[in-house]
Write a protein that binds this DNA or RNA. Structure first.
Lengths: 125, 125
DNA sequence: CCTAAATCTACACCCAACGTCAGGTTTAGA
DNA sequence: TCTAAACCTGACGTTGGGTGTAGATTTAGG
């Protein structure tokens, strides 16, 4: 698949893919002859993973540091202790985020209930 | 309290406070005479709320749209339906984020377990 | 009363994460 | 074979969220 199809399927522009390539986030499976990039399905999966990690608030640099975990053969990963540290740090962050998000959600629900009350009251008069 | 103390207590630079002021996020309680800004405790609370909302991934513009909910008297809020819409949208977003975050956490925990296994195995040999 | 520390405004600059534009090359298909 | 559509690179522009700096003013404390 060429960059056009990949970008469409992944929902990002081809310039974004170029940019990600410079950061080491995705690579074409092949660049024969004159330089057209050809991708396989794993490229799509990488882009989807990148999007997911971005939604969690990771920067592209942070993503670059961990994305291979999701695609390398685990037995081949060098520096397993280091990898473990990174994962643990991310887990801690995720837990903190979960707590904060739950509290925020409760807050929102309270505010929504309050608003409903105020609106009903306003309508009645 | 002057901007120096506020910035120290809130953990942001005074330049950031100026910047937030331009965006309508915080205001000094008073600017007498020659223009020094004087703040009260609610300014600090606003800055803390802003930081919390940022951690949830809201942009400063989005924060500007909702922060008054936390400090205005609810009965005085204009456009309650609009406010309700915003809150509901944020709640939906929060729920989606919670789902994604939980899945990410499960992923992480699996990877961590796998890493522990691989490390134990490597040590044994 | 005087001076050092704090603050003021305004403009410039920074980084991340892209988008736009220009000019040139390549490829697929009629 | 030839042309339109897709692709390439490189340079520059943009937006969000700030930071740095300069030069002037103000204020608090000895």
């Amino acid at each position: 698949m060429q960059i056009g199809e990949l970008s469409e399927r992944a929902g990002v522009s081809h310039r974004t893919i170029h940019y990600y390539e410079r950061l080491g986030l995705v690579e074409p499976a092949e660049r024969e002859g004159a330089g057209y990039r050809y991708y396989d399905e794993t490229a799509l999966k990488r882009l989807e993973k990148i999007a997911a990690l971005k939604r969690l608030g990771l920067s592209l640099d942070e993503i670059a540091a961990v994305i291979d975990l999701y695609f390398e053969d685990a037995s081949g990963i060098r520096g397993k202790e280091r990898v473990l540290e990174i994962l643990q740090a991310q887990l801690d962050k995720a837990n903190a985020q979960l707590d904060e998000l739950s509290a925020f959600k409760r807050d929102l629900e309270n505010n929504i209930a309050r608003m409903h009350g105020l609106i009903a009251q306003a309508r009645q008069k």
